[in-house]
Design a protein around this nucleic acid. Structure first.
Lengths: 260, 260
DNA sequence: GCCTAGGTCCCGTGC
DNA sequence: GCACGGGGCCTAGGC
């Protein structure tokens, strides 16, 4: 930990923030504040105690005591302005594109902390839509017995077909994969099916493959003569071991701090 | 600030976390850790220094040194498990629905902080899509002269129509409003128009109302016989004063701390 | 409780 | 650089 100051006054705050906000440090400020935002929308947040975090890449988060999401934020800050006044510490964070500004006015500072986090590890994750595509290609019978995958990401004038296949009777099958299917998914599948039917002048099957489905979307699908096949995400998600194999043997954590 | 401990050992960590995680406190733990997640997907995050925040409603965030978004998280935790072991401090956060678990293994603790934030102010915001709906309802001529709004959020088998209206010639008009229109928006509008045409066996107009538009989406829209009308967000966003008027005169900040 | 749709979405990928 | 689509999306609003 570089620095922690409890109950700093506004001039302490101005000094520390001016020094560290623009640099490669994680800075926290907590205290009673109000926040205005203007940009793609406009918001006001009245006085309350919050935790403000400036990350090492300049991302700014204003977190209240609850919820996953920050109350205000700035994914990337281009210009900082810090000013101690008689009755407040003003912190402005401006972003250029889109042009937006977050203004935080602290009436009272509870603490101020400067640290530096070293983390070069990437998140390895399985269970994305792309992993379902791969499972189908490896083992098409999770969709249907005797299905043969012809092509992935087949391009049509209506967009890319996730998986293009033929069934045991030789029919063309268009497969659309979605983790979270909705009405638009149905129309998208419909468009691909229409496109392939035009191309081959044949009847074409359309199958939506997803780990879950709602009754209404299923109705909408079946009204159009399209089909649904469920998949188990557990079958799709690789084991921890498999994820492990994609990593290097040793962690690339490196304790050398980069200052600035 | 309730507590701050620098470089706590694992048994300190276990003690403090066991006491405070389940209660109405904001708890921060920072240090060298690795994180596993399993639930809707499965992920591994190798060792690195991170800031872990448990909010007062049990939301859990694992923030790396960069980016707006946490590397791992749990929007709501139902069960906590904390265990100091010889070489690590293990923190498990389980959620019941969906069933998922985040496991954080600390190899080294940099600091541990317990605070309590008091914030009962709501965020006042203007510029959401709903504000455009309201502008249209108040003054339909921003879309078209002599347009009459019939209904908002009209339900159809294909979903909800933002604004349902009739034009000067008595035609039905389906209006879809979007801040950020894209291809899917066109499909969505198409869905509604098709549904209303089926329902009334009439030709129905479809208008996409948005503050911006791209050439490709416009082409895609017009190919389908659908229309676009631009609106200015500035006309939609209320002034700060208007936002102010929606607030009570006095802040409802109350310095009484609720312990538990 | 499920379902629908928006978000200052953010963010990666492909053109 | 923009644009498109996914996300462990999250979250609010209806029913």
């Amino acid at each position: 930990m570089e620095k922690i100051i409890k109950n700093p006054d506004f001039s302490d705050g101005e000094e520390i923030l001016s020094e560290y906000l623009r640099r490669n440090f994680t800075v926290q400020v907590s205290g009673l504040c109000s926040v205005n935002y203007q940009g793609r929308a406009k918001s006001k947040l009245d006085r309350g105690e919050r935790l403000v975090i400036k990350k090492q890449d300049s991302a700014l988060l204003v977190h209240g005591p609850e919820n996953y999401q920050p109350k205000n934020w700035q994914p990337e800050v281009d210009e900082w302005e810090v000013k101690a006044q008689e009755d407040e510490l003003l912190l402005k964070a401006r972003r250029k594109d889109p042009d937006e500004i977050v203004e935080i006015r602290f009436e009272d500072l509870e603490f101020l902390m400067v640290t530096q986090l070293v983390d070069s590890s990437d998140l390895k994750i399985r269970g994305h839509e792309i992993d379902i595509h791969e499972s189908i290609e490896e083992d098409p019978k999770i969709v249907e017995e005797e299905l043969k995958v012809v092509e992935r990401e087949r391009e049509t004038p209506a967009g890319f077909i996730d998986v293009f296949a033929r069934d045991s009777e030789g029919n063309y099958v268009v497969i659309e994969v979605k983790r979270n299917p909705d009405y638009n998914t149905v129309l998208q599948l419909q468009r691909y099916v229409d496109e392939i039917e035009d191309e081959f002048s044949l009847n074409v099957r359309g199958i939506l493959v997803a780990p879950k489905m709602t009754d209404k979307v299923l109705d909408y699908l079946e009204e159009r003569g399209l089909e649904f096949v469920g998949v188990e995400m557990e079958d799709v998600i690789a084991s921890y071991e498999t994820i492990d194999n994609s990593q290097k043997g040793l962690s690339d954590f490196n304790p050398d701090y980069e200052v600035d």
